[in-house]
Amino acid sequence: MKKLMTIAEVAKELNIPESTARYYRDSFTDYIPSVGEGRKKRYRSETVEVLRFIAEGFKRKLTAIEIDNGLSQMFPRNFDIEQSTATTAAVVQQQSENDVNQYALQLQNALEQMGATMQVIADQKEEIAELRKHVSYVDKKQQQQQKYIDTKLEERDRKLVQSLRESQETKKLLLEVKEQLAASQEEKKKGFFARLFNRGSI
Protein backbone atom coordinates (compact mmCIF):
# COMPACT_ATOMS: atom_id res chain seq x y z
CA MET A 1 0.00 0.00 0.00
CA LYS A 2 1.27 3.46 -0.89
CA LYS A 3 2.65 5.65 1.87
CA LEU A 4 0.43 8.40 3.26
CA MET A 5 2.05 11.75 3.98
CA THR A 6 1.43 14.77 6.19
CA ILE A 7 1.16 18.19 4.58
CA ALA A 8 4.58 18.99 6.08
CA GLU A 9 6.09 15.95 4.36
CA VAL A 10 4.46 16.97 1.08
CA ALA A 11 5.92 20.47 1.43
CA LYS A 12 9.37 19.03 2.19
CA GLU A 13 9.12 16.78 -0.87
CA LEU A 14 8.44 19.84 -3.03
CA ASN A 15 10.99 22.01 -1.20
CA ILE A 16 8.43 24.72 -0.51
CA PRO A 17 7.23 26.28 2.79
CA GLU A 18 4.50 24.34 4.58
CA SER A 19 2.33 27.49 4.59
CA THR A 20 2.58 27.62 0.79
CA ALA A 21 1.63 23.95 0.49
CA ARG A 22 -1.40 24.58 2.71
CA TYR A 23 -2.40 27.57 0.58
CA TYR A 24 -2.21 25.46 -2.59
CA ARG A 25 -4.16 22.67 -0.88
CA ASP A 26 -6.91 25.00 0.34
CA SER A 27 -7.15 26.80 -3.02
CA PHE A 28 -7.60 23.58 -5.03
CA THR A 29 -8.98 21.18 -2.44
CA ASP A 30 -11.09 19.28 -5.00
CA TYR A 31 -7.93 17.84 -6.52
CA ILE A 32 -6.07 16.93 -3.30
CA PRO A 33 -6.44 13.19 -2.55
CA SER A 34 -6.48 12.68 1.21
CA VAL A 35 -7.52 10.24 3.94
CA GLY A 36 -8.96 11.06 7.34
CA GLU A 37 -10.10 14.32 8.87
CA GLY A 38 -8.62 17.16 10.92
CA ARG A 39 -5.15 16.63 12.32
CA LYS A 40 -5.25 12.97 11.32
CA LYS A 41 -5.68 13.86 7.66
CA ARG A 42 -3.01 12.30 5.49
CA TYR A 43 -2.27 12.72 1.79
CA ARG A 44 -1.63 10.21 -0.94
CA SER A 45 1.60 10.43 -2.92
CA GLU A 46 -0.36 11.82 -5.89
CA THR A 47 -0.76 15.02 -3.84
CA VAL A 48 2.91 15.84 -4.50
CA GLU A 49 2.34 15.94 -8.26
CA VAL A 50 -0.89 17.93 -7.91
CA LEU A 51 0.83 20.58 -5.79
CA ARG A 52 3.83 20.54 -8.13
CA PHE A 53 1.45 21.34 -11.01
CA ILE A 54 -0.13 24.17 -9.00
CA ALA A 55 3.26 25.61 -7.99
CA GLU A 56 4.44 25.52 -11.60
CA GLY A 57 1.25 27.29 -12.69
CA PHE A 58 1.74 30.15 -10.24
CA LYS A 59 5.42 30.32 -11.24
CA ARG A 60 4.29 30.85 -14.85
CA LYS A 61 1.90 33.59 -13.62
CA LEU A 62 -1.24 31.69 -14.60
CA THR A 63 -4.53 32.64 -12.98
CA ALA A 64 -6.31 30.34 -10.52
CA ILE A 65 -8.96 29.63 -13.17
CA GLU A 66 -6.31 28.64 -15.72
CA ILE A 67 -4.61 26.37 -13.19
CA ASP A 68 -7.97 24.80 -12.28
CA ASN A 69 -8.66 24.13 -15.96
CA GLY A 70 -5.27 22.48 -16.29
CA LEU A 71 -5.88 20.36 -13.18
CA SER A 72 -9.25 19.20 -14.54
CA GLN A 73 -7.47 17.85 -17.62
CA MET A 74 -4.59 16.18 -15.76
CA PHE A 75 -5.99 14.91 -12.45
CA PRO A 76 -9.27 13.42 -11.19
CA ARG A 77 -11.35 15.28 -8.63
CA ASN A 78 -11.66 13.90 -5.09
CA PHE A 79 -15.10 12.34 -5.58
CA ASP A 80 -13.74 10.39 -8.57
CA ILE A 81 -10.90 9.06 -6.43
CA GLU A 82 -13.22 8.12 -3.56
CA GLN A 83 -15.57 6.18 -5.85
CA SER A 84 -12.67 4.40 -7.47
CA THR A 85 -11.08 3.60 -4.11
CA ALA A 86 -14.33 2.18 -2.70
CA THR A 87 -14.67 -0.33 -5.54
CA THR A 88 -11.01 -1.25 -6.10
CA ALA A 89 -9.34 -1.05 -2.66
CA ALA A 90 -8.64 -4.77 -2.50
CA VAL A 91 -7.18 -4.82 -5.99
CA VAL A 92 -4.93 -1.83 -5.29
CA GLN A 93 -3.45 -3.55 -2.24
CA GLN A 94 -2.48 -6.54 -4.36
CA GLN A 95 -0.88 -4.60 -7.24
CA SER A 96 2.23 -6.23 -8.61
CA GLU A 97 5.51 -4.46 -9.30
CA ASN A 98 4.58 -4.32 -12.99
CA ASP A 99 1.39 -2.42 -12.16
CA VAL A 100 3.39 0.08 -10.12
CA ASN A 101 5.81 0.58 -13.00
CA GLN A 102 2.90 1.03 -15.38
CA TYR A 103 1.42 3.66 -13.09
CA ALA A 104 4.78 5.44 -12.88
CA LEU A 105 4.95 5.50 -16.68
CA GLN A 106 1.42 6.89 -16.91
CA LEU A 107 2.27 9.52 -14.30
CA GLN A 108 5.38 10.50 -16.25
CA ASN A 109 3.31 10.86 -19.41
CA ALA A 110 0.75 12.89 -17.51
CA LEU A 111 3.48 15.19 -16.19
CA GLU A 112 4.85 15.66 -19.71
CA GLN A 113 1.36 16.49 -20.95
CA MET A 114 0.96 18.83 -18.00
CA GLY A 115 4.16 20.65 -18.93
CA ALA A 116 3.06 20.90 -22.56
CA THR A 117 -0.37 22.19 -21.54
CA MET A 118 1.10 24.81 -19.23
CA GLN A 119 3.55 25.89 -21.94
CA VAL A 120 0.68 26.31 -24.41
CA ILE A 121 -1.23 28.41 -21.87
CA ALA A 122 1.88 30.53 -21.19
CA ASP A 123 2.50 30.97 -24.93
CA GLN A 124 -1.11 32.00 -25.47
CA LYS A 125 -0.86 34.58 -22.69
CA GLU A 126 2.33 35.93 -24.27
CA GLU A 127 0.67 36.10 -27.70
CA ILE A 128 -2.32 37.91 -26.22
CA ALA A 129 0.01 40.40 -24.51
CA GLU A 130 1.83 41.00 -27.82
CA LEU A 131 -1.48 41.46 -29.65
CA ARG A 132 -2.65 43.96 -27.06
CA LYS A 133 0.65 45.83 -27.40
CA HIS A 134 0.27 45.86 -31.20
CA VAL A 135 -3.34 47.05 -31.00
CA SER A 136 -2.25 49.81 -28.61
CA TYR A 137 0.54 50.82 -31.00
CA VAL A 138 -1.83 50.87 -34.01
CA ASP A 139 -4.38 52.89 -32.04
CA LYS A 140 -1.70 55.39 -31.02
CA LYS A 141 -0.56 55.70 -34.65
CA GLN A 142 -4.13 56.25 -35.80
CA GLN A 143 -4.58 58.98 -33.21
CA GLN A 144 -1.35 60.63 -34.37
CA GLN A 145 -2.44 60.43 -38.01
CA GLN A 146 -5.85 61.85 -37.19
CA LYS A 147 -4.22 64.69 -35.28
CA TYR A 148 -1.92 65.35 -38.24
CA ILE A 149 -4.88 65.36 -40.65
CA ASP A 150 -6.88 67.69 -38.39
CA THR A 151 -3.89 70.05 -38.16
CA LYS A 152 -3.46 70.08 -41.93
CA LEU A 153 -7.16 70.69 -42.47
CA GLU A 154 -7.12 73.59 -40.03
CA GLU A 155 -4.03 75.02 -41.76
CA ARG A 156 -5.70 74.64 -45.17
CA ASP A 157 -8.88 76.35 -43.96
CA ARG A 158 -6.83 79.16 -42.43
CA LYS A 159 -4.97 79.69 -45.72
CA LEU A 160 -8.23 79.63 -47.70
CA VAL A 161 -9.77 82.26 -45.45
CA GLN A 162 -6.62 84.38 -45.69
CA SER A 163 -6.59 84.00 -49.48
CA LEU A 164 -10.26 85.01 -49.72
CA ARG A 165 -9.61 88.07 -47.59
CA GLU A 166 -6.63 89.08 -49.71
CA SER A 167 -8.68 88.51 -52.88
CA GLN A 168 -11.48 90.70 -51.56
CA GLU A 169 -9.00 93.40 -50.56
CA THR A 170 -7.39 93.24 -54.03
CA LYS A 171 -10.78 93.58 -55.73
CA LYS A 172 -11.63 96.51 -53.50
CA LEU A 173 -8.30 98.17 -54.30
CA LEU A 174 -8.77 97.61 -58.06
CA LEU A 175 -12.24 99.11 -57.85
CA GLU A 176 -10.90 102.17 -56.08
CA VAL A 177 -8.14 102.58 -58.70
CA LYS A 178 -10.71 102.20 -61.48
CA GLU A 179 -12.91 104.85 -59.90
CA GLN A 180 -9.95 107.15 -59.49
CA LEU A 181 -8.96 106.70 -63.17
CA ALA A 182 -12.51 107.36 -64.28
CA ALA A 183 -12.62 110.52 -62.16
CA SER A 184 -9.26 111.62 -63.52
CA GLN A 185 -10.39 111.13 -67.09
CA GLU A 186 -13.56 113.05 -66.39
CA GLU A 187 -11.52 115.93 -65.00
CA LYS A 188 -9.31 115.92 -68.08
CA LYS A 189 -12.37 116.08 -70.35
CA LYS A 190 -13.79 118.99 -68.40
CA GLY A 191 -10.45 120.80 -68.58
CA PHE A 192 -10.17 120.28 -72.33
CA PHE A 193 -13.65 121.66 -73.04
CA ALA A 194 -13.06 124.55 -70.69
CA ARG A 195 -9.87 125.54 -72.52
CA LEU A 196 -11.60 125.04 -75.87
CA PHE A 197 -14.49 127.35 -74.94
CA ASN A 198 -12.14 129.89 -73.48
CA ARG A 199 -10.22 130.13 -76.80
CA GLY A 200 -13.44 130.57 -78.75
CA SER A 201 -14.48 133.47 -76.62
CA ILE A 202 -11.20 135.25 -77.29
Rank of each mutant, 00 (worst) to 15 (best):
D68N: 07
D68P: 01
L71M: 02
L71G: 01
L71D: 01
Q73V: 04
Q73I: 05
F75A: 03
F75K: 01
P76E: 01
R77D: 06
N78H: 09
F79A: 05
F79L: 07
E82A: 08
Q83K: 07
S84K: 00
T87K: 10
T87N: 09
T87W: 15
T87M: 08
T87S: 13
T88F: 05
A89V: 03
A89H: 09
A89N: 04
A89R: 00
Q94C: 05
Q94M: 10
Q94W: 02
Q95R: 15
N98G: 13
V100R: 00
N101L: 12
Q102F: 10
L105K: 06
L105I: 11
Q108C: 13
Q108D: 15
Q108P: 13
L111P: 02
L111S: 08
E112G: 01
A116W: 08
T117N: 12
M118N: 03
M118T: 07
Q119I: 08
V120T: 10
I121A: 05
I121Q: 06
D123G: 04
Q124G: 10
K125L: 11
E127F: 13
I128N: 06
I128S: 03
A129V: 03
L131E: 05
L131W: 13
R132L: 12
K133R: 04
H134E: 14
V135I: 15
Y137L: 11
V138G: 02
V138T: 12
V138I: 14
K140Y: 08
K140I: 06
Q142G: 11
Q143H: 14
Q143D: 12
Q145S: 10
Y148W: 13
Y148F: 15
I149D: 07
I149M: 08
T151P: 05
K152Q: 11
L153A: 13
L153D: 11
E154T: 03
E155C: 05
R156D: 14
R156M: 15
D157G: 04
D157K: 06
